[in-house]
Structure formats: C-alpha cells, structure tokens
C-alpha cells in the first residue's frame, strides 16, 4: 500500500527531499519561515534547514523574483514562492524579461535554473486580488516552462523535476487542491515535463482540463457514466512544453473534445488547445465542434454565490459534456 498524503504535503516533501539531496536548492518568499507560508506549505522547513535556506523576505515580489533569477545565474537552484498568483504581476518583470530570456539573449552563455511556485485559483472567498489564474500569460513566454499539477502524486514528481530542470519553471499550485489526498511514494521520483496524463480512459468524448477542473471533470464523468456517456480525461500537467501527442491521440480516438479551465475564456489556454487540435490530424476525426468551458468574463467576485458561478462547476461540465455527446456535425 502506498501511503496517502495531501497535495500540500507533496509540495513540502518534494522541496524537503530535494533540499536534502542538493545544497544548491533553497526556498525564498514572504512568510515562508516561522509562519510556514500563507498556506502552510513550508511549515516545519525552517527548523530543518535554518534561515539560510528557508529565506523569509519582506513584501518584495519583484525582489523575490530577482533574487531567484540572480542566484540561479550563479549556479544556485532557488525555489521562489509568490504567495498568490495575483502577485506574480509584481514579479513579472524579472520572470518574463530577465529569467525567461537570459539563455537566449546571451547566446547560451547563461543558465537560470529556478522555480517560481505560486497558488492560483478561486473558490476561497478571497475575491478579486487573491483568486486569479494567469497561467496563459506565462505560457506565452518562450524560455519559461509552465507546470500545473492536479494530484499529490503529480505534484511531487513534477516539482522535483522542475527543481532539477535547467530552465526557469513557473509551478502553479491550486489552493482548493492543497487538502486533497492521494497515494504518493515516500522515495524520490520524477515526472518528465511535457508529458500529459490520461486521468480517465473513455470512448465517447475527451475532456482536456487543467488545475482543479481535472477533479471536477472526473466527478462529472462519474455521473455521466451512469447515463452511458464514457468520457476520457486528459490532464496536460505541463502547459509549456505541451504534450500535443497525447491530446491529439485522445481526440482522434473519441472524435469529440471539451476543453475546461478556470481562467477567463478569452485569451485563455483553451484557445491554444483548440487551435492545436484543429491544426492537427485530429481535425479530420472531429464529429462535433471543439467546445470550451471556462471562467466567465469577469474578475472573481466576493459574494459566495457569484464566485461559485464565475468558474465552471461539476454541473456545468456535466451539462456541457452531455450537450457535446449529443452533438453531431
């Protein structure tokens, strides 16, 4: 029996084991020390590694991103924590203009192996400034890798791989998944970046989902199975580089695809996924239009009911998937 731990514990375990293995790895961010991080991800790590390697910062998002970028440039392997993905707007100059481009613009004379971890997503009642999903902004930047794990198992393997990767990696965690549990081996293992995972096999239609939408899609698929609709769920896990092969193969198999993500629909990652499918040989296999279900065109509101309706929920996925199952070209 593989032991079960939470998504949050998997983040902590990956960082802890990698820091034990490699003295070049350190964690830097706001309140990551005694406080344990805003979500308690690094709780206990200060006692284990001391303030030299669990580096608390004042409120300096740009400074944190710069500190990670610069330390990586001289051979360290920093993990920067930005408390909420909303605050990556403040860190983006260093991440997007500097870290992402150092290797290319210096003609290969620089390497910047850093990880920027940040929790994204709504559903906590934290409103407009603590609920956003900006993954596609970073997907748009050559030089960055963007990882978005959805299970404790994937978190551990992908985070260890991200720390060892020689490129800057944006590692997007989901707040609502922090407490979800799953089997995670105690020993170290890695999952390659750029490899999707079929979270559920099915024949009738494919759902490509990211973040917490993978879990919601799995719940929707269980219910639709009772109606005789057999859904396959593909979790890209890494948005850049993207495993187009697995996605295209699934769509060719089922002939129908629904893309589900939490981020606002316009300009979201779903547009990229839809285009990748439409441009591929899967196009000829499509039996219905490619559909997208995504966040509404609004900032995330505070009111519980409004917040709930701002992003796809299980019932919305059921409805949309059922509609797609019945659609014919």
């Amino acid at each position: 029996m593989v032991r079960e731990i939470t998504y949050l514990e998997a983040v902590r375990e990956a960082m802890t084991q990698e820091m034990e293995r490699d003295p070049k790895v350190f964690l830097i961010g706001e309140d990551v020390g005694l406080y344990g991080g805003a979500f308690q991800v690094s709780y206990g790590m200060l006692e284990k590694f001391g303030p030299e390697r669990i580096v608390d910062t004042p409120i300096t998002e740009l400074g944190i991103a710069g500190a990670a970028t610069g330390a990586a440039l001289v051979g360290m392997r920093p993990i920067a924590e930005i408390m909420f993905m909303d605050f990556t707007t403040l860190a983006s100059e260093q991440l997007v203009n500097q870290a992402a481009k150092l290797r290319f613009m210096f003609g290969g004379r620089a390497t910047d192996p850093m990880v920027l971890r940040t929790p994204a997503g709504s559903g906590t009642g934290a409103a407009e400034h603590h609920s956003q999903s900006f993954e596609n902004w970073f997907v748009h930047v050559p030089g960055l890798k963007v990882v978005m794990p959805t299970t404790p198992y994937d978190v551990k393997g992908l985070l260890i791989e991200s720390i060892r990767d020689d490129n800057p990696v944006v590692f997007i965690e989901h707040k609502l998944l922090y407490k979800s549990k799953g089997p995670v081996p105690e020993e170290m293992y890695t999952i390659p970046l750029g490899k999707a995972d079929v979270k559920r096999a099915g024949r009738d239609l494919t759902i490509v989902a990211t973040g917490v939408m993978v879990q919601r899609s799995l719940a929707a698929a269980d219910q639709l199975a009772q109606e005789g609709i057999d859904i396959e769920i593909v979790d890209p896990r890494t948005l850049r580089p993207l495993d187009t092969e697995t996605i295209i193969a699934s769509v060719k198999k089922t002939g129908k695809v629904l893309i589900v993500h939490e981020a606002v629909k316009t300009g979201g990652f779903g547009g990229e996924l839809a285009a990748v499918i439409a441009e591929s040989e899967a196009f000829g296999y499509l039996e219905a239009p490619i559909l997208r279900l995504a966040g509404k065109e609004v900032p995330i509101p505070y009111n519980r009911n409004l917040e709930y309706h701002a992003v796809p929920q299980v019932e919305n996925i059921i409805e949309k998937a059922r509609e797609l199952a019945q659609l014919k070209v």
Binding site: I28, G63, A65, G66, L73
Partner: peptide, 9 residues
C-alpha cells in the same frame, strides 16, 4: 533585483 540574488548566491 538580480544583483540581490547573485549576492545571495
């Protein structure tokens, strides 16, 4: 901002 990180490293 990078200078801080280089210094830290």
């Amino acid at each position: 901002p990078m200078a801080v990180g280089v210094g830290l490293g």
